[in-house]
Amino acid sequence: MTSFIPPLPDIVLEPIVRLALSEDLGRAGDLTTDATIPPDTTMAVNIVGRKDGVIAGLDAASLALRMIDTSVSLDIETPDGAAVAPGQVVARLNGSARSILTAERTMLNFMGRLSGIATLTREFVSRIEGSDAKIVCTRKTTPGHRAVEKRAVRCGGGTSHRYGLDDAIMIKDNHIAACGSITEALKRALDYAGHLRMVEIEVDTLDQLEEIIPLKPHAVLLDNMSCDNLREAVRMVGGAFTTEASGGVNLDTVAEIASTGVDFISVGALTHSALNLDLGMDAA
């Protein structure tokens, strides 16, 4: 079971949620609700799972509701990170019918998308159970939604590669090409990094790995290597720094990749290819 994942701070969530609500409400608000629902109407509804999965996104959904109406109650029964089954109640809402109906789609959009990411992550994590490897997501996220999508990965039991260009140095093949050699690129990065910034470098071959081992980067990304080469790479590194496998990772290959002894396995699909989890809002 995933440990408690704290909600993102409102100061992080607010711009994301505000944009989503503004996109839906446009210039005139919720015309259908305004036309059909008297202002004093109240209702109770439940957010319910319609497929097996893992819940995420309740922090964003809760803020969306509060930004519409702080008086509507939201009682969570299946928290972020918990498994959900068809028919299972995730949360109960009670209050102004107008407010609930206006917030409904934005709440479900966040929860469906983010629960889909958490569900796919949980599948990958379960495939490597028993190994010491960890599943990590990448920067292949929906523009503007990186914070919520990376939290959803955590809700599914995964963890994160760097959040952006500004929190770690990651030397990739085009950096190496622009520098002229892999050794020169790594030397420059290590000289620049100081003592608190992590430096990771991508290698495509065992020859490249052999070249950079004496320089002792903090981590190496073993890109698109066969499992035999991954095993040899782990042997060559010998625990001197962190190893990460990337490329060709899917639900069918991830267990064998984990068996090679790498420390981390990065999976871009967690955030760029996850399907929405089907959740509904039903009158109680």
Rank of each mutant, 00 (worst) to 15 (best):
Met1Arg: 14
Ile5Tyr: 07
Leu13Val: 10
Arg18Tyr: 03
Leu21Cys: 04
Leu21Met: 08
Ser22Arg: 12
Thr32Ile: 09
Thr33Ile: 11
Asp34Trp: 10
Ala44Cys: 14
Val45Gly: 01
Ala61Asn: 04
Leu63Val: 12
Val72Ile: 11
Leu74Cys: 15
Asp75Cys: 06
Val84Gln: 02
Val84Ile: 04
Leu93Cys: 10
Ser99Gln: 05
Ile100Gly: 00
Arg113Glu: 10
Arg113Asn: 10
Ile117Ala: 05
Thr121Val: 08
Phe124Ile: 04
Ser126Cys: 12
Ser126Tyr: 02
Ser126Gln: 15
Gly130Ser: 04
Asp132Thr: 14
Ile135Leu: 07
Arg139Met: 05
Lys140Met: 08
Thr141Asn: 02
Gly144Met: 02
His145Asp: 02
Arg146Thr: 14
Val153Gln: 01
Gly156Asp: 06
Ser160Gln: 06
Tyr163Thr: 13
Asp167Ser: 07
Ile169Tyr: 09
Met170Cys: 05
Lys172Asp: 02
Asp173Gln: 13
Ser181Tyr: 09
Ala185Glu: 12
Lys187Asn: 12
Asp191Tyr: 01
Ala193Arg: 15
Met198Pro: 00
Val203Tyr: 02
Ile212Tyr: 01
Ile212Gly: 03
Ile213Gln: 06
His218Thr: 05
His218Gln: 03
Asp223Thr: 00
Met225Pro: 05
Ser226Ile: 08
Val234Ala: 05
Arg235Ala: 10
Phe241Thr: 03
Asp252Thr: 08
Thr253Glu: 01
Ser266Ile: 07
Gly268Glu: 06
Thr271Tyr: 04
Ala274Pro: 03
Leu275Asn: 12
Asp278Gly: 04
Gly280Cys: 11
Ala284Val: 13
